[in-house]
Amino acid sequence: MRSPSLTRALPLVELGGLLLVALLCLLFHLRLPGRLPSEADYRAVAERLQAEAQPGDAVLLFPWWAERARIFVPASLPVYGYLGSDRDDLSAHPRIWVLGQPELPRSDEAGFLEAFLPGRRAVGAPSRHGTLTLALHENGRHRPRRFTATDAYARARVYLEQPDGTRRDCPFDGKAHRCPGPAHLYVAPEWHEILYEPRRCLWMHAPGGKQRLVAELDGVPGGLGLRLEGGIIFEHAFPRDSRLSTTHLGVDDAASGARLLSLAIPPGLEGVQKAEVRLPQGAPHTVKVWVQADNADRRQVCLDVLAVEPEVGVRG
């Protein structure tokens, strides 16, 4: 038999617990405004960035979703903040400014640093602007770029290539290389999402069937890493529908016809796929970047081809 005193005490204990929870909730609401940055805080950050940022620098947001900063950060500085950006190498950038809000509820600064810090080194002391922190880091994961297809695309020769080698040209209209056929068959650099990540990449929709959409690019320097990075954009990568077909991307050596890089993206495979090979030393190469899928439905490819140096690493 339960004791009468326990029976009487339980509701009181319960009420005490409820009141305690409510007081903690009230405390949360009272504290929350003080954990949020003001516009003046953002302006102070912007001033520091304006004064100290160098060409090639980037801003990384922590937490990744705190994008209000985009309004204030100087337009010349790219701002990164997407689901997964904590782990992004940001290899295009030698220095990274981390704009943090560690006081926000559930901000896991230790978790962020665990993902972000490897291969990087803080430069100087972080500054505080209200609840915002701004810390400069040397990016040891930086890989200097000697060639990017998105920059060189205007000089490319673009065509649709049949398996027997016959070609139909996609003439350049000043903005894009437009192919005969559907309006989506063109090659041009565009902003697209690949699994939440914003990427400026070459739009190369697979043409369908066995033919390939090819962009032939000159001047790819030898002795460097040749990287192919690409994926299916937006929501189109997600469906595993059996009627959809695997998309093949590749880079061939135009002179020898040798396959340098290739990626296969089956239906349902999301995210940026990457492949890399070291190009032999010597004269600049001409490469054929291509995309092919038997069924072109939802095979909306965006890719880039880069010639990159090894990671610079951190000093000291």
Binding site: V73, A75, Y82, W191, H192, E193, Y196, I233, F234
Partner: peptide, 18 residues
């Protein structure tokens, strides 16, 4: 997210006004 990046593409800017 694609819709925001299409806006970057269309407007040539990644900076919101408000």
């Amino acid at each position: 997210r694609e819709h925001e990046f299409l806006t970057w593409q269309a407007f040539g800017t990644r900076t919101p006004v408000t």
